[in-house]
Amino acid sequence: MEFDLPKAAGLLVAIVALSIAGLAASGVMTLQTVLMMVLPSMAVFAAVAFWLGVKHGEFRATP
């Protein structure tokens, strides 16, 4: 399977959504705490890690 930007971004969004759903369903924190504190920080971290991964892949792919 070859990954392009839409597939990779969709997979990233699915992982974050599944993580948030699991954390919200677990009852460890209130839903308000999960949505207001965990979701934004998880989304920002995922975006930064994704960007760094793309840049590293571009660096490795250049001869």
Results as ranks from 00 to 15, higher is better:
M1K: 11
F3L: 15
F3C: 07
F3K: 10
D4F: 08
D4G: 11
D4S: 13
D4R: 14
L5H: 12
P6N: 01
P6E: 00
P6W: 00
K7P: 04
K7W: 07
A8R: 12
A8S: 10
A8H: 09
A8D: 11
A9E: 14
A9H: 11
G10A: 09
G10Q: 07
L11T: 13
L11W: 11
L12W: 02
L12V: 08
V13D: 14
V13C: 14
V13L: 12
V13G: 13
A14W: 08
A14V: 00
A17I: 07
L18M: 03
L18D: 05
L18T: 10
L18C: 03
S19L: 06
S19I: 05
S19G: 13
I20T: 02
I20C: 01
I20E: 03
I20V: 11
A21D: 10
A21P: 05
G22A: 02
G22H: 00
G22W: 00
G22Q: 00
L23G: 03
A24V: 01
A25Y: 09
A25S: 10
A25T: 12
A25Q: 09
S26R: 08
G27A: 04
G27W: 00
G27D: 05
V28M: 09
V28N: 09
V28W: 11
V28A: 09
V28I: 07
M29E: 14
M29D: 09
M29C: 13
T30G: 13
T30R: 06
T30Q: 09
T30C: 00
L31S: 07
L31W: 07
L31P: 02
Q32A: 15
T33G: 11
T33L: 13
T33Y: 13
T33E: 15
V34Q: 02
V34K: 01
V34Y: 02
V34L: 00
V34D: 04
L35D: 06
L35E: 08
M36V: 14
M37A: 15
M37F: 13
V38C: 05
V38I: 10
V38K: 04
L39I: 04
L39E: 02
L39P: 03
L39F: 08
P40I: 01
P40Y: 04
P40E: 04
P40F: 04
S41G: 07
S41I: 13
S41T: 11
S41D: 10
M42D: 12
A43H: 00
A43Q: 01
A43N: 01
V44P: 00
V44R: 04
V44I: 08
V44M: 04
F45R: 13
A46L: 01
A46R: 03
A46N: 05
A47G: 08
V48M: 02
V48N: 02
V48R: 05
V48H: 03
A49F: 11
F50D: 01
F50V: 01
W51F: 11
W51M: 14
L52S: 10
G53D: 01
G53H: 05
G53T: 07
G53I: 00
V54K: 10
V54Q: 10
V54W: 09
K55C: 06
H56R: 15
H56L: 15
G57Y: 06
G57M: 07
G57E: 07
G57F: 05
E58D: 06
E58F: 07
F59E: 12
F59M: 14
A61Q: 08
A61I: 02
T62I: 11
P63G: 12
P63V: 06
P63M: 06
